[in-house]
Write a protein that binds this DNA or RNA. Structure first.
Lengths: 203, 203
DNA sequence: GAGTGATTGGAATGATCGTTCTAGAGTGAC
DNA sequence: GTCACTCTAGAACGATCATTCCAATCACTC
């Protein structure tokens, strides 16, 4: 059963490295050391090498992230308050961690989307899952499907972008600002849905 | 005068490489080849090596980007329409380029913010300049300063994040959705500014 | 045309890259 | 015990990394 342990240790270490320094800068040897495993074990458990480990790391990290976000949003009765609250909580975590990267998905995909087709496809799946979940969530809270989808896209984009700004500026302000702005937009959508009108953007 | 030419060719090639594959994956030799210059010339013009070239590339790219964004926004009388229009134009460019990265600033900083202090500081300066310019722009269009600053932060964050999603999903939808959502928020701010009320977030 | 400083062209260097390979340790079945 | 198999351990490999170095070439001044 040291099997599962080592496998998971490698993936966990990869998540850590990916969010600190991205995909290209992460070395297999460095990864092995961080996971307390020899390089041979890495290639035994992941025949696809570095890329397969990164693939697993992104997927696993994305699952955890989605669960967390839905859990945080679910704590609030009013979805408008929930958006602002979720971003506020995220801002606190980022600040308390010393401006570390929270989630490797956005940053790694920004780095490799044009250059690593397999990782790009994994990212595509991840974002689709996130957007689908968010769409269902906001549809359940009264938004027409097209509006829910559009808003979820904006939320994910703003969250990922705000994390980059916050880490670069060592300031929580971008995350808080994005949360407050999105909450305002969501209030507007709830008051007067645009529904099917100009929703041609939602294919 | 081949001096200036070569210097600029190196920086331009670095911009290209940075947005395609990020900082860590970009090799100096590869850069030299792309710039049609020997590696010796790179270190002659940039004693700081790879990092200094990247620094210059980010700054130059950021200046151009700011000018472009203000120019696009300035084409519209109504700032609400302008936001949606700017994102729509951005979406078209991204799609027509075959989902290439537009601007290296966001993606590179997501990659190196925790690991390259000098590049992080450059990014800090860049984002500050962007936010200051945006704040002035929206203040000039009737928003209280705190609101203008908050909205600008959300705009930059959403734009950077939406680019990552769009490239990953090979779809313009994230960019369009972010633009429409931000336009809605801006309309809300213009109708009923929150001004100094809960603007504690804007330090 | 001799001399001078900037710039080019690329070879050399030591480190590190991702991956492969082989030897041995661990584990359970018979 | 021994066979079969999984996993560990890390050396070995060729390629590539960022950087340094130096001879050759260039553009100009005197």
């Amino acid at each position: 059963m040291a099997d599962v342990d080592t496998r998971q240790r490698i993936v966990t270490a990869m998540i850590e490295q990916l969010r600190r320094q991205g995909y290209a800068a992460t070395g297999v040897k460095q990864l092995a050391q961080a996971a307390a495993a020899p390089t041979g074990s890495i290639y035994h458990h992941f025949r696809g090498g570095k890329r397969e480990v990164a693939d697993r790391a992104l997927s696993q990290s994305a699952d955890a992230y989605l669960e967390l976000l839905l859990h945080v949003l679910g704590q609030y009765d009013d979805p408008v308050v929930g958006v602002e609250g979720a971003f506020r909580e995220a801002a606190e975590v980022v600040e308390q961690s010393g401006w570390m990267n929270m989630c490797p998905v956005g940053t790694v995909l920004g780095e490799v989307a044009d250059v690593e087709p397999e990782l790009r496809e994994t990212g595509d799946r991840i974002f689709r899952a996130w957007v689908d979940a968010g769409t269902a969530y906001y549809e359940h809270h009264g938004l027409p499907r097209a509006d829910a989808r559009e808003f979820t896209y904006a939320l994910v984009a703003a969250l990922e972008g705000a994390f980059i700004l916050a880490r670069t500026q060592r300031s929580a302000e971008p995350v808080l600002a994005a949360g407050r702005t999105l909450a305002l937009a969501l209030r507007g959508l709830l008051v007067s849905p645009r529904g099917s009108r100009a929703a041609g953007s939602a294919r």
